[in-house]
Design a protein around this nucleic acid. Sequence first.
DNA 1: CAGAAATAATCAGTGCCCTGACTAATCATG
DNA 2: CATGATTAGTCAGGGCACTGATTATTTCTG
Lengths: 155, 155
Amino acid sequence: MAGAVDLTTHPGHLARRLQQAHYLLWNSMVSEEITSPQFAVMNALVAEPGLDQRTVGARVNLDRSTIAEVISRLGRRGLLDKVRDPQDGRRYLLRLTEDGVRTHRKLTVRTARMNQVFLAPLSAEEQSAFIELIRRVADAAEGLRNPGEPLVAQS
Amino acid sequence: MAGAVDLTTHPGHLARRLQQAHYLLWNSMVSEEITSPQFAVMNALVAEPGLDQRTVGARVNLDRSTIAEVISRLGRRGLLDKVRDPQDGRRYLLRLTEDGVRTHRKLTVRTARMNQVFLAPLSAEEQSAFIELIRRVADAAEGLRNPGEPLVAQS
DNA sequence: CAGAAATAATCAGTGCCCTGACTAATCATG
DNA sequence: CATGATTAGTCAGGGCACTGATTATTTCTG
């Protein structure tokens, strides 16, 4: 074992394991059709209908290429509509269809149940700490890449 | 915003963001050639040379398909050797090449630096808590899928 | 020892995630 | 108002991650 490190102390390796574990739990408890990133996009459009792709991507932390794929899949399933912005011909304005809204509502319930199961091994205080610590590390790391961009809206 | 949930309280969404943030930091601070999962595989083979694919996968939490791809890439770059097990013709026995060992050693140093930067926003106590909480949640969620399999070696 | 069950690896198919190069539309400046 | 810079979206390419089906080998059992 000369030279090997203990990966269970490496946050990156743990982050990957955590994400995979969540992926599997989502599949078994929430949906086999809609993925967690797809739900995040739908959720952003429930909060703010009519956003363009780029902005949705910023809201849910998906880059321009990935958001395009996710949106194309949601569109193919009839959960979302794309319309050219008449004011700005580069943009597509996105909004959920009736079906999309219904699906989002249904998954919201299941997601809450899944979150409980996922966090069940922790006490209530630990759950809050867990959420807060991850958020701080993720925020900081994301901030390293977008040095200029303020996190709160800038008018 | 009727019906939208706050994703910053959803551990799954945070896990994805954390993993992505780590991916980007790895790319800029450790290597653009070798990925974090590839490093994990190499590390497992430094610890236990001669493992077969399946077992390496179990050590680093990668499924049979993914581990095959990762190993194939490492093989193509000359970092790892695959030899049929003479005792069991189904298995491939894996071990790093000289170059693989050298590369692992070099990345180990950089990985340690990256971990410091990644965790820098947390105090020392928070860093320990962060690691421990993620590990407990990931362990528990992984346990949900492999009900029978004990976590420690079983003879 | 032959047929059945189990196991290691592969393959096809889907989806997420990034980068770099490209197109089309808009905006800003001279 | 024309040219250049910026911006929204697409596309090609590489890598990670899963499932279900298939192949080859070994093991278990009658």
